[in-house]
């Protein structure tokens, strides 16, 4: 198979490594349950990807405006009018747990 790492385009500039504690912190932020084995797997896999992504450091970005959208357009505005009917029964037909029109979750302690 062909190798796709062109030296000109993907200069290895240092190795980035993520430990499994960091992985667990990220998983917690993302609300993903990971066990120890998975955490290690992610640590290795993500490190490779971040290594690769570090190619961005080679870019000359001084004075460049970040680009959040492909098109240079402005937000369109919608008239203030009620256009959505009540469809609670339709929407709650696919809900995992409801009672009296409310969505149920395990008790939230405040």
């Amino acid at each position: 198979m062909v190798t796709l790492r062109s030296p000109a385009l993907y200069v290895d500039i240092g190795t980035m490594s993520l430990n499994s504690d960091e992985v667990r912190r990220i998983a917690q932020l993302a609300r993903l349950a990971v066990d120890d084995r998975e955490a290690e797997g992610f640590a290795a896999g993500l490190s490779d990807i971040f290594d690769f992504v570090e190619a961005l450091d080679a870019a000359e970005i001084g004075g460049v405006e970040p680009m959040a959208h492909p098109l240079d357009a402005e937000q369109r505005l919608r008239p203030d009018a009620v256009t959505e009917p009540d469809q609670r029964e339709l929407f709650q037909a696919i809900a995992p747990a409801i009672d009296g029109g409310l969505y149920l979750v395990p008790r939230v302690i405040e």
């Binding site: 932020l29 993500l46 992504v53 961005l56 870019a59 460049v64 680009m67």
Partner: peptide, 24 residues
């Protein structure tokens, strides 16, 4: 996981903002 990491505190500029500039 990648996305959560690149947006998290302390990494936004190094990854997300940089990537958006490269995008331009």
């Amino acid at each position: 996981m990648i996305g959560t990491y690149v947006l998290s505190a302390g990494y936004y500029d190094a990854y997300y903002l940089k990537a958006q500039k490269v995008r331009r």
